[in-house]
Simulated scan of single mutants.
Amino acid sequence: MSAFPPPFAEPQWSAAAPELLQLGGVEDEPSLRADAARNRARLLEAAARLVAEHGAAGVTMEAVATAANVGKGTVFRRFGDRTGLLTALLDHSEKKFQAAFLSGPAPLGPGAPPVDRLRAFGRAMLRRSVDELDLQLAAEPSPNRRFSVPPRVVARGHVTLLLRQAVPGADSELLSHTLMGYLSPVLIHHLTRQCGMPLERLETGWDDLVDRVTGRPAVGLSG
């Protein structure tokens, strides 16, 4: 019998699970006309490029309209204001990421050994956070909600499931908090922008952490 308490109940995931990530009052794309859905996706992709190139401060309604080659009024009609646009952008990004690790190709998606999926998950999350760090920091929940917002519940549940498969008998729930702490946007901001660490070092450190937690031979790191 395991010495650890029973793990928390995991959400019942399916290919439709990304719909859990609706962050605001944005209407779902399936309910839109096909042309409106395409226009909305094009606006969000343009906004995502602006975030990657200029940070969240570079995302204005005017800039998105210019980048998407539409009138500014179109952006306002679709998202209401800048806050609505940023909320929709983060929601769009979360859904794409969740779909990738729940049902996308291996090793991030199903079909690879659990340790390989853990490695791929962390690396993908690190890259995504670096690309949209300002946006994620702006949306960082307050301390009393930090661990209960739907995107983090789903991500940590995924890590817990993979840990349970990789290291049976371990306290996978607590270990998942340890691994997710490494992927915190606040820590990534500190390490990359305040300490000047390159993304490659964070990725190597993630692999090393996963290997040590799961009992694989550890990879030596240069200080």
Rank of each mutant, 00 (worst) to 15 (best):
E200R: 11
G25Y: 01
T160S: 12
Q136D: 00
P151S: 05
R146G: 00
R145A: 14
L133P: 06
A41I: 08
R78G: 00
M197W: 11
S31V: 13
V154L: 14
R212S: 03
D35Y: 02
W206P: 03
G196R: 05
H177W: 12
K72Q: 01
D211S: 10
L199E: 12
S172Q: 09
V26H: 12
L209P: 00
L163T: 10
V154W: 09
F121P: 06
L191D: 11
P6Q: 09
R117W: 06
R212C: 02
T160V: 10
F147N: 04
G55R: 05
P150N: 04
P7I: 10
L89T: 08
P114Y: 07
D81G: 10
L199K: 06
A46E: 02
S93Q: 15
G80S: 08
Y182D: 10
T178G: 11
P217I: 13
S93H: 12
Q22V: 13
P30H: 09
R193E: 14
P110L: 11
P198L: 02
A99P: 07
L118H: 07
E94M: 11
P18R: 07
F97L: 15
A3L: 15
P107H: 08
E10T: 11
L126W: 04
P143Y: 14
V210S: 09
S103W: 03
Q194A: 13
R127V: 10
R123F: 01
D211T: 00
P18F: 14
H92L: 00
L221K: 00
V213S: 08
P114G: 08
V70H: 00
A166T: 04
S222A: 11
D35I: 03
